[in-house]
Design a protein around this nucleic acid. Sequence first.
DNA 1: AAATATTTTTAGATTAACCTAAAAATAATA
DNA 2: TATTATTTTTAGGTTAATCTAAAAATATTT
Lengths: 243, 243
Amino acid sequence: MHQKYEFKMIHSFKIHSLIHYKMHLSPTEENYLKAIFKLTEEAEKASATTNAIAAEMSIAAASVTDMLRRLSEKELIHYEKYKGVHLKASGRKIATALVRKHRLWEYFLVEKLKFGWDEVHDIAEELEHVRSDELVNRLDEYLGKPNFDPHGDPIPRADGTIPTRQLTPLSALKVGESGILTGLQNHPDSLMRYLRKINIGIGTKIQVLELHDFDESMSVKINDEKEMELSEKVSKSLLLKIT
Amino acid sequence: MHQKYEFKMIHSFKIHSLIHYKMHLSPTEENYLKAIFKLTEEAEKASATTNAIAAEMSIAAASVTDMLRRLSEKELIHYEKYKGVHLKASGRKIATALVRKHRLWEYFLVEKLKFGWDEVHDIAEELEHVRSDELVNRLDEYLGKPNFDPHGDPIPRADGTIPTRQLTPLSALKVGESGILTGLQNHPDSLMRYLRKINIGIGTKIQVLELHDFDESMSVKINDEKEMELSEKVSKSLLLKIT
DNA sequence: AAATATTTTTAGATTAACCTAAAAATAATA
DNA sequence: TATTATTTTTAGGTTAATCTAAAAATATTT
C-alpha cells in the first residue's frame, strides 16, 4: 500500500511539459499571445508591458496580470513580475500560426468574396480561431499560397518563417521619384477608409511631384493620371517598392 | 428631485424586449438553440426534454435546466418547468440561421477545399459561429446559392424557408426499382466513413437486385456496375430520388 | 392507489475571464 | 536622495457555464 503511493508520487510531474501534441488554448488565451507578438516581434521590442497589452486588448491591467501568470505556467511566455513579458518559442509558434490564419482569411475575403480591404479585419479576427491545421493548409493551397495579404502584410508560412521585402515610406522619397504602393506601416480603419475613398490601394503607382516643407505634406501623381495632396501622416504610412 | 426619480422609474422596463436589432448570443447559447431545433423542428416533435438536450450536447441535465431558464428570460424559447421546451419565433430564426451557416460552410469545404464529406462537420461547427450577415450572404453568392449541402441536407435560405424534396428510403424499394442517392436519414461519422469506403455518395445510382427477408438486407447494383450487399440499417439510412 | 423508478430541478461548488479599489513596486522629478 | 507619479500586482468580487449530489416532481408498475 505504501509502495503504491510512493510510485504514484514519483510520477506526478507536470504532464503537459512532456506531451505537447497540441495544447488546447481558448480564443482569449490566443488573443493574448497575438497581442504580445504584435508588441514585441512585430514592433521589434525586447518585451511588452502589462499596460501596453491592456491597451492593445482594451481591458484592465489587472486582468492582464492574471492571464500572464497562467500563460507563464503553460510555458508559453517568459514573465517575471514587474519585468515585462515576451514569447517563448512555443508561444511564438502559436502566435505566428494565428497571424498566418488571420491573413489567409483576409486574403480569401477580399480575393474570393470581394470584400473591401477595410471590411475584413473583424471577420478574420473570428475566423483565425477556427482550429484545424488541415483547413489552413487547404485554404493556403486554394488561394495559391499567397505571400502577402490585401494590406500588403506578410503571411507567415506553414514552417513559421515570414516573407520579407525592402520597402520605403513615401515620405522618404525625393521630388521626381516614384514607386508602387506595396504595404502600410499600420492600418487603422480610418486610414483604410480614407485610402479607399481617394482610390489608392495596393498596386497603385505614386510619384512625388512637390514637397511642402511647411507641414511636410507633398503633391503626388497617382497612376500617372490624377494629382493630389498627401499629408505627412499619410505619406509616412504608405510603403512603396521603388520603381 | 422627486420628480426626476419618478420619471426614471416609469421608464425602467426591460429594454431588450423592445430593441432587438441583434441580440448577442454566446456560441454556447447558440448551440443550445441548435440542439432544441434539431430535437423539435427537424425531428418534428412538439417539444424537447431536458435529458434529450443534455444527451444531444453531452453535458449534465442540471446544466441544461440552468440554461433553459436563461434562454427563456431572453424570450428565445418557450419553457415551463417539467414541461419540456420549444423554440419561440426569435429562437427559431437564430437556429435556422445557424443551420444555414453550418451547411454553407460544409458546402464550401467540400466543393472548394476538396475535403471529404466525412471530414467537414467539426470544422463547420466552429465556422457557423462566426458572426457576420454580410459574410454568409457573400459566401452563399460565391457558392452559387446551393440548396443542399454535401450530405444532401437542405440549406435554409436567407429568409428562413427551407428547401424540401420528396425522397424515399432505399429500404422501401422493391426488386428492380432504382434511384439516385440524394440524402441521408442521419449521418453519424461511422456511416459516412463506411459509405466513402464502399464508394457510395450523393449522386450514386442504386438499383435493388434482391431482397433477403431473413435479415432485411438487400443486394444492389451500384452505378450499373458493381454489385454489393447492404444491411437493413444502411438501406434505411439512404434516401433516394426514384428514377 | 401505493410503491417504485425516472426525470427534472435546486443547492452549492468550481473555473475562466473579467472587473474595481487598494497596496506594493518601480520610475521620474524636484 | 527624498518625494511624487506611474505602473503593476494583489485582494476580493462578478458572471457564464459547467459540475455533483440531493430533493422534488412526474411517470410507471405492481
